[in-house]
Computed example of a mutant assay.
Amino acid sequence: MEMKIGNINLEGVPLFLAPMEDVTYKSFRWMCKKFGADVMYTEFISSEALVRDIEKTKQKMHLFEFDRPVAIQIYGHNIDSMVRAAQVAEEFEPDFLDINFGCPMKKIVRHGAGSALLKDLPKMQQMAAEVVKAVKIPVTAKTRLGWTESDKPIAEAAERLQDAGIQALAIHGRTREQLYTGVADWTLIGEVKNNPKIQIPIIGNGDINSGKKAKQFMDETGVDALMIGRGAIGRPWLFREVKHYLQTGEELPHPTVAEVVETLKEQLCLNLKWRDNERSGILMMRRHFAKYFPGLPNFRELKIQLLRAETNDEVHLILEKIVEQYGGFQLDFSNASLK
Score class of each variant (00 low, 15 high):
213 K>F: 03
213 K>V: 11
215 K>T: 06
217 F>N: 08
217 F>A: 11
219 D>Y: 04
219 D>F: 05
220 E>H: 09
223 V>Q: 04
225 A>D: 01
230 R>S: 12
231 G>N: 03
233 I>S: 02
233 I>A: 02
233 I>E: 05
237 W>V: 07
238 L>Y: 01
238 L>D: 00
238 L>N: 01
238 L>G: 00
240 R>C: 09
240 R>V: 02
240 R>A: 15
242 V>Y: 03
243 K>R: 15
243 K>Q: 14
244 H>G: 13
244 H>K: 04
244 H>M: 11
245 Y>G: 15
246 L>Y: 06
246 L>P: 07
246 L>A: 08
248 T>F: 02
248 T>S: 11
248 T>G: 08
251 E>P: 03
258 A>Y: 08
258 A>N: 14
258 A>H: 13
262 E>K: 09
262 E>T: 15
263 T>F: 06
263 T>H: 06
264 L>H: 03
267 Q>M: 11
268 L>S: 00
273 K>N: 11
274 W>T: 10
274 W>L: 10
276 D>E: 12
280 S>N: 13
285 M>P: 12
288 H>M: 09
288 H>W: 07
288 H>Q: 13
289 F>S: 03
289 F>Y: 12
291 K>M: 13
292 Y>V: 07
294 P>E: 09
295 G>I: 02
296 L>N: 12
297 P>I: 11
298 N>V: 01
298 N>M: 08
298 N>S: 14
300 R>Q: 14
301 E>A: 13
302 L>N: 02
304 I>V: 15
304 I>P: 00
305 Q>D: 12
311 T>G: 06
312 N>E: 13
313 D>M: 07
319 L>Y: 06
319 L>S: 01
321 K>Q: 15
322 I>D: 01
